[in-house]
């Protein structure tokens, strides 16, 4: 039951990404190209998603616990640090070069387009490289 429910939630997300244009790098890059072939569509994606999530979270997070799990797993930090800002800045540079973000590319795997797989392989390599760097730093600090 839990697996089917979560699968269907993933499906809703995947359909949303597919029809929104977030899985299409041409559209994503045009959203940021104010000086050229500007396409403002993606503002509607983020606007629609944030408003629905904002309202929905108000109701959901009032409950003592989620339906299929013991507790809500929410990030609790509120401080801004160099890792957050530097990482996000670097993410933007990569997004501007490739045109895919992780949430756009994951559903796009289902289109069978080879370019998505190339991006995903590089993305996964980047995630592991960053994790290796992070654990090196942790080891250094511990020593």
């Amino acid at each position: 039951m839990r697996m089917i429910t979560v699968y269907l939630i993933g499906l809703v997300f995947g359909i949303g990404i597919s029809i929104s244009g977030m899985a299409n790098p041409a559209k994503v890059l045009n959203f940021f190209d104010f000086a050229g072939t500007w396409d403002p569509s993606l503002a509607f994606v983020m606007g629609g998603a944030v408003v629905v999530a904002f309202i929905g979270y108000r109701f959901v997070l009032k409950r003592p616990a989620p339906i299929m799990s013991e507790r809500f797993m929410l990030p609790t930090r509120s401080d801004l640090d160099a890792k957050l800002i530097g990482g996000s800045a670097l993410f933007g540079v990569g997004w501007g070069i490739a045109g895919f973000c992780p949430g756009g590319a994951l559903p796009a795997i289902g289109t069978g387009n080879n370019n998505v797989l190339i991006f995903m392989a590089a993305l996964v390599a980047g995630i592991f490289a960053a994790k290796a760097l992070q654990s090196m730093n942790t080891t250094k600090q511990a020593a």
Partner: peptide
């Protein structure tokens, strides 16, 4: 899924996204 960038840009961009989202 229209990709207006080269394969090299997909690889470099994807790698930077991976590092960036992990630290960020």
């Amino acid at each position: 899924v229209q990709v207006p960038v080269s394969t090299l840009m997909l690889v470099v961009g994807g790698f930077l996204v991976g590092i960036g989202v992990t630290f960020g």
